[in-house]
């Protein structure tokens, strides 16, 4: 019994400790980036890494998500004879839910894991210590550009995902099943409101922050992991943790924002 209590206390303390560290890291990074001299290119480089290089996977997954959605919706709507609604249902599902969530998950898989591993390796190979010893703030040099790039890139990737998804729906609904083009786009224009777009936007902003925050913090604090993380095994462990934690955070955040805004 005491063992159990001890264990619960230990886990709780460690979790609180980790949460505090992560919050401090975020705050320090945001303060550090405000101090001159400014280096906009470091952010541009990260946008290239997180944003531009995720484009292909976003386009491909967006296209198929839109196609599958239209396929399923077409079948269901067909039973009620309301195929005209295909455009708006597909667009709403994409803009409000699937766009932000799927795009964020894709960014986690492609860029989040890579960021975490990169920073983790920098920690184990003393590169972060070297930065500190050179008087270069790692929060500013390493972390902040990634987080800012994440917050900027993920909403843009999400909107690209949405647009490509709508095109995918068009391909299935109009080109394959022969629904009229006017019906597909008219119902979309009538059914989608600013509120829906805003919800998707808020979600993607939050996801952009959370993904890069978790990925960078997990790598950065690799040496403080429970039970000690070290070398290649440590990097693989924190990377897996970062991906799982990000995915959970995305789905939880998705529900939370949905519940608040609906």
């Amino acid at each position: 019994m005491t063992r159990l209590l001890y264990r619960i206390g230990d886990v709780t303390l460690h979790t609180l400790d980790q949460a505090g560290r992560m919050a401090l890291m975020l705050a320090r990074s945001m303060v550090a980036i405000l101090r001159p001299p400014y280096d906009p290119f470091s952010i541009v480089r990260q946008i290239h890494f997180i944003g531009v290089r995720s484009l292909l996977v976003i386009v491909v997954s967006g296209l198929f998500t839109g196609m599958v959605l239209a396929l399923q919706f077409y079948n269901t709507l067909d039973r009620f004879g309301s195929m005209d609604m295909l455009g708006s249902t597909t667009a709403l599902a994409l803009i409000r839910e699937l766009g932000p969530v799927m795009a964020a998950l894709m960014v986690v898989a492609r860029a989040g894991s890579a960021m975490c591993a990169e920073i983790g390796i920098m920690r184990t190979s003393e590169q972060i210590d070297a930065l500190e010893c050179m008087g270069i703030d790692p929060h500013r040099f390493l972390i902040a550009p990634k987080i800012i790039a994440g917050v900027l890139s993920v909403p843009i990737l999400t909107s690209i995902f949405d647009v490509v998804g709508i095109i995918g729906g068009y391909l299935v609904g109009v080109v394959i099943f022969g629904l009229s083009e006017g019906a597909y786009f008219d119902s979309m224009a009538a059914g989608v409101e600013w509120n829906d777009v805003a919800m998707g936007l808020y979600k993607s902003l939050l996801f952009g922050l959370v993904i890069t925050w978790i990925a960078t913090a997990k790598g950065y604090f690799l040496h403080l992991e429970r039970g000690g993380a070290f070398g290649a095994e440590g990097v693989s462990r924190v990377t897996t943790d970062a991906v799982v934690l990000s995915a959970i955070a995305i789905l939880f955040g998705d529900y939370l924002i949905g519940a608040v805004m609906l």
């Binding site: 920098m122 190979s125 003393e126 590169q127 008087g135 270069i136």
Partner: peptide, 25 residues
């Protein structure tokens, strides 16, 4: 400081690494 494993930033070239403190300070 010269660390045991060198601790050069792997994303920068050798020259950029050496230049890093100059650039920062």
């Amino acid at each position: 400081v010269a660390f045991q494993g060198g601790a050069l930033l792997s994303s920068l070239s050798v020259g950029e690494n050496v230049r890093l403190p100059l650039r920062a300070h």
